[in-house]
Amino acid sequence: MPVRADDLPGTAAPADPSPPPGQVIIGRFDQRPPYAVHRPRGADSWLFTWTTGGAGLLRQGSARTGAAPGDLVVLGPGVPQHYTVGPGAGHWAFWWVHCQPRASWTAWLRPYETGDRLYAVPSAPDGIRERVDAAFRRMLADARWSGEGPPPAPEAAGPGGEHTEVAVAHGTAARELALCSLEEAVLLTAARSEPRPTGADPRIRRAEDLIAADPGAPHTVRSLAECVALSPSRFAHLFTEQLGHSPMRALRHARLRHAARLLEATELPVERVATASGFGSPFHFSRVFRQRYGVPPGEYRQGLRDGG
Rank of each mutant, 00 (worst) to 15 (best):
M1W: 02
R4K: 09
D6E: 15
D6A: 14
P14N: 07
P19R: 11
G22H: 15
I25R: 15
I26L: 15
R28D: 05
P33R: 15
Y35V: 02
A36V: 05
D44Q: 13
L47A: 10
T49M: 14
T49V: 11
T51D: 09
T52L: 12
G54S: 14
L57I: 03
L58R: 15
G61Q: 10
T65I: 06
G66T: 11
G66W: 10
A68F: 04
A68S: 11
D71V: 05
V73F: 13
V74E: 00
L75H: 02
H82P: 00
Y83S: 02
Y83D: 07
Y83V: 07
Y83R: 10
T84V: 06
T84N: 03
A89D: 00
A89L: 02
G90H: 10
H91T: 07
W92S: 01
W96M: 09
H98S: 13
A103S: 11
S104Q: 13
T106G: 05
W108I: 03
R110A: 13
R117A: 12
V121E: 00
G127P: 01
E130A: 06
D133K: 02
R137F: 03
L140M: 08
E148H: 12
E148R: 09
E148D: 07
P150N: 10
P150R: 15
P154S: 06
G160I: 11
G160H: 12
G161V: 06
G161E: 02
A169Y: 09
T172Y: 14
A174Q: 00
E176N: 13
A178W: 12
E183R: 14
L187V: 06
R196S: 08
P197T: 08
T198R: 15
T198G: 04
G199R: 07
A200S: 07
D201M: 07
D201A: 00
R203S: 02
A207L: 08
A207E: 09
E208T: 07
I211V: 15
V221I: 14
S223L: 13
E226V: 11
L230M: 15
S231L: 12
S231G: 13
P232Y: 12
R234Y: 10
R234W: 10
E241L: 15
G244I: 01
H245S: 04
S246T: 14
P247W: 00
P247T: 03
M248L: 14
R249L: 13
L251W: 01
H253R: 15
A254H: 01
L256V: 12
A259L: 07
L262T: 06
L263Y: 03
L263S: 06
E264Q: 14
T266H: 12
E267D: 03
P269L: 02
V270W: 04
V270D: 10
E271Y: 09
F279G: 00
F283H: 13
F283I: 07
R287W: 01
P297A: 10
E299L: 09
R301A: 09
L304I: 07
